[in-house]
């Protein structure tokens, strides 16, 4: 097994350039999540948003981004909670190799 890139105390990777899809699968499994196409849809949206704006969005904006890209069925907190239980914005950004959402209050 290859050496994992450096992670912080909460499991977020330190250098964003070290993220790979394989790493995403590993982080997800640590959290008890087996990644499906539905997860990858959200991961891709999050990573694109971060690449454009350098911001890891908190929940309200994550819902908005997903709603705009994938529609009402998926753009709601219940759907996102099913994919990424308890704290979707935090968990999804961790798996996506992004920083912890800063404006999580």
């Amino acid at each position: 097994m290859t050496q994992q890139p450096e992670r912080d105390a909460q499991g977020f990777i330190v250098d964003l350039n070290t993220w790979t899809p394989t790493l995403a699968i590993e982080i997800a499994s640590e959290e008890g999540i087996a990644l499906t196409d539905d997860h990858w849809e959200v991961i891709t949206l999050l990573r694109n948003f971060y690449m454009e704006f350098s911001i890891s969005p908190a929940m309200r904006i994550l819902v908005k981004i997903v709603k705009e890209a994938l529609g009402e069925d998926k753009g709601n907190s219940i759907y996102l909670l099913t994919l990424f239980p308890q704290s979707p914005a935090k968990l999804a950004s961790k798996i996506s190799g992004l920083p912890k959402p800063t404006n999580c209050l």
């Binding site: 454009e52 704006f53 350098s54 911001i55 904006i61 908005k64 981004i65």
Partner: peptide, 14 residues
């Protein structure tokens, strides 16, 4: 530093 201009561009979404 982080690119602050890039972050300002997200404000309409917020």
């Amino acid at each position: 530093s982080k690119n602050l201009l890039q972050m300002l561009k997200a404000l309409p979404i917020y």
